[in-house]
């Protein structure tokens, strides 16, 4: 998936990937997609929860080995 911006949260634990996602999303325009690279399993449930609360769209969560790639589309 093509992303407009990527943030590397590999090696970071809760709540930092979420905090960094919130910060990065501020710089995106509605419709743009953020790619979050992470390896803390918590993000698999945290990101959908964050999106639900903030009204953004969690497009997909892909796992490749230890690395988790999350795509979030800014809607609000």
């Amino acid at each position: 998936m093509d992303a407009d911006k990527t943030i590397d949260c590999v090696g970071l634990y809760c709540p930092m990937p979420i905090v960094k996602t919130a910060q990065a999303m501020k710089e995106l325009e509605p419709g743009q997609v953020l790619e979050v690279l992470a390896d803390d399993a918590g993000i698999k449930s945290d990101m959908p929860a964050w999106c639900e609360k903030t009204g953004n769209e969690c497009v997909s969560i892909d796992e490749e080995g230890d690395e988790i790639k999350v795509y979030v589309r800014k809607t609000g």
Partner: peptide
């Protein structure tokens, strides 16, 4: 602080 920071990140 972890929870306060997460809450702030969630708007």
């Amino acid at each position: 602080f972890n929870l306060a920071n997460t809450g702030a990140s969630m708007g």
